[in-house]
């Protein structure tokens, strides 16, 4: 018990220290004003791409219906990109750039807490970005998000399990980074791109070909984004997901999140073993 609590305290200390380090690296290059501009421009531009696409086809981009579903899905998908990138880039940055990964690896009692801590700053920035994008949508694009109609329970459970699943995938991908060269550093963006398609972030998954529909319904991110849509807008997107009640949706999401967390951790462990066997923990592969 004493050992357990000491170990928990060590993990918490590692997490806190790594989070502090991550925040320093994210934010201390600019003054707060410049940093705020930077934090707003990126996510708003990301959302405006979809707005303009909608505008091109439909002539106007505002209000509820398909537009709102797309907009909200797109906004929350920012988390996926940031969490995956946050967790995987730590390995590449610490190993290849700061050349500190081996020291962190041997000095932290649990490397997962270090990775989580380092990526925490990116998660915090993603939260700010999502809030900015939703506020922009609510104010300028008349998104039908009203305090009286928000289903907080569905939203909060979806967010919690959604984040767990993202962390699971991120840990797995961070493991892959241990055994690939530096150019794999942007793999998180490619994986996020694939998830953007298969999770139906900006369209109903019903229109995917059957072959792509199977992986789509096996992804926790599909249920997570559906959950946040239902939580904030009161309705989901497409027929495939409509068969689940809110409660069923959360249960499936919880189970899948757990599965992905376990799979991600197993992937990390396997890759870690390979990296150690092949002496790759402190490799430099710049080219």
């Amino acid at each position: 018990m004493a050992v357990g609590s000491r170990s928990a305290a060590e993990c918490w200390r590692t997490f806190k220290l790594a989070a502090w380090l991550g925040w320093q690296m994210e934010s201390n290059w600019a003054d707060p004003f410049l940093f705020s501009i930077y934090s707003i421009v990126k996510p708003v531009s990301h959302s405006l791409i979809l707005v303009v696409m909608y505008l091109v086809v439909r002539g106007q981009a505002a209000g509820g219906g398909l537009f709102a579903q797309m907009y909200v899905g797109n906004a929350f998908f920012l988390y996926v990109g940031q969490v995956l990138f946050g967790l995987t880039w730590v390995v590449i940055e610490d190993r290849e750039f700061y050349q500190m990964f081996k020291y962190m690896y041997v000095s932290t009692p649990n490397i997962y807490w270090y990775l989580l801590g380092r990526s925490f700053a990116k998660m915090a920035i993603a939260t700010v970005s999502v809030v900015i994008v939703l506020t922009f949508g609510r104010v300028f694009l008349r998104l039908p998000i009203h305090a009286s109609t928000v289903d907080l329970t569905t939203f909060c459970f979806s967010m919690f399990f959604g984040m767990v699943s993202c962390i699971g995938m991120g840990i797995g991908l961070a493991g892959v980074m241990l055994v690939v060269a530096r150019h794999g550093g942007h793999a998180s963006e490619a994986v996020a791109g694939a998830l953007f398609l298969l999770s139906g972030a900006v369209f109903p998954i019903d229109i995917l070909p059957r072959l792509a529909l199977y992986p789509a319904i096996a992804l926790p991110t599909t249920y997570w984004l559906e959950g946040v849509r239902r939580g904030l807008l009161g309705s989901g997107m497409g027929q495939t997901m409509a068969v689940f009640s809110n409660r069923e949706l959360i249960v499936v999401l919880a189970m899948l999140s757990l599965v992905y967390l376990i799979l991600g951790t197993l992937t990390f462990v396997m890759c870690e073993k390979t990296a150690k066997a092949r002496g790759l923990i402190d490799m430099h592969t710049h080219h």
Binding site: Q99, A181, R182, M283, H284, T285, H286, H287
Partner: peptide
Amino acid sequence: EHSGYGIL
């Protein structure tokens, strides 16, 4: 110094 490209 640690110059050079590790992958080469």
